[in-house]
Amino acid sequence: MSEMEARASGAAPVLRNVLVGLMIVIAIVLQLSVAPAFAVRGVTPDLALLVVLAVALTRGGQAGLVTGFAAGVLLDLAPPADHTAGRWALALLIVGYVAGRVREGSINHSSQGRPSAMTVMATVACCAFIGVSIFAVSGLILGEAPLTLLPTVAISVGYDLLLAPLLIPMLLWLLGRGDL
């Protein structure tokens, strides 16, 4: 644990950051171009949110915060987006923060390095709900009101939960590889 921690904070930060950046760009590109083909009633899976979550779970709140913000800004500015910039940034930033807190809590309470699978799933559900809700509610506040909030949020959370068991282990493994 402490060894990994030392590596995470010390060794090759550039490579790590490049890896995270690459993952975010890939996630956003896939989310915008490929995911719509698999949309359930127009709701696509939030791949970027899952990446931010994975980063926060491996690297902690600080990294999750910054990654979330960066991914959110990119998502706000990427082509089909026409909403007020800063909405996804805020949502993903909070997601990164919350997931980071979960990691710290689980590490502080249990001697295990990694949070358990159940914790991860609960975090995914919670963070997906928080992220999509923040995005939707900020739209409500800014007057870009979506019409049906709850069903969309519910489908989105369900979809993210469905994808999480497939993607999160892969992302965690990739991020772990990046540490080496």
Partner: peptide, 27 residues
């Protein structure tokens, strides 16, 4: 050991949230 995994600095959180607000305003 507990300090090694202390939470993110609150100033970062606040600064980035303010960044979001700035972005929304600029937009």
């Amino acid at each position: 050991e507990t300090k090694a995994v202390s939470g993110p600095k609150r100033s970062w959180l606040i600064a980035l949230i303010l960044c979001c607000a700035t972005l929304a305003t600029l937009d």
